[in-house]
Design a protein around this nucleic acid. Sequence first.
DNA 1: GCGACAG
DNA 2: ATCTTGTCGC
Length: 340
Amino acid sequence: MAPTDLHEVANTFATGIPNLIDQVDQLVRAIPVGSVATYGDLAKSLGDSVASRWVATYLLDPACGVANLSHRVVRSTGEVGLHFSESIEAKIELLRGEGVVVVNDSIDLKIYRAQLPTIVPSLAKLKAWQRDFECPVETDFAVAKIQTIGGIDVSYGKKQAVSACCLLKSSGQTKIATHTYTGIANFPYITGYLAFREIPLHLNLLAQMQSAGTLPDVLLIDGNGRLHPRRMGIATMLGAITGIPTIGVAKKLIYGVIQVPKLKVGQWEPIVASKDEPDEILGYAIMPHTKTKHPIYVSRGFGIDDDSMKAIIERCLAGHRSPEPIYWADRESRKIASTL
DNA sequence: GCGACAG
DNA sequence: ATCTTGTCGC
Ligand SMILES: [Mg+2]
């Protein structure tokens, strides 16, 4: 089987990513004078209520496309909430000027809530893709044949972001090379959708590395794999579309519970969705060394089994909290991003 | 009212 | 993730 041309994969993937900003702008412009919508209403129209926090963040930005209309978006409690002008009074006056009655900084949503237009529920589509993907179980991964281990991470500058991939020897301890790609992250950060924000940058970088013949045999990614509400975190998705075996390594728990919360250094503790489902192991927590209180959360991405994953992560641990490939990718990407 | 929420 | 100075500890 001929290897996939990653430049092509990068283009295809980028084409499928929705423009959430345009969609929110469209929704906000559709709120009639004298009516309001809630942050959650807008998020649900986009296809997932978890996006409500991003919607709020976006509308609080004076530079957003619809700042002049953002006073029409309020909290689900009816409270007017914050305004980009940093003056709640200004927001209230704008609403009153449009005929909305505001009492105790609150609005009666039963009266003033707008009927929003139906738009393409982009997040619901992305969610369905994550949920319906059936990750094949790998049984042939050969740890002994690994020659290089990669670590990949993104850092953000003023306008642009930098994806860096560091290559280490199979020992997981010696850095061989660093490759970087600088571009723009268009999709916002929304919990559960990190892949759509960072994968486009990673793909451009990996395409470049493919041309140079420097792709790693296994890739550690800053983020989760199977440890995800829909079992398809960024590591799973990046592996599935590139064919590169991947492992997700996160610094915070996004989902699930640690079966045995008593963590000992170097011991792998399974993470499950809930105590009621102890049989489906989504990932593991492991304390990387004595000098930290915080574990790392490791889950398989694509093309690798849990035992091989553990063996590779173990040989990548050194004096830092993160495995060396991730540690270096974080450092190298930040070094460049801080100059942008 | 409180807690959760990858980067 | 980023915004930021000093400070405590190995
Ligand atoms: Mg990162």
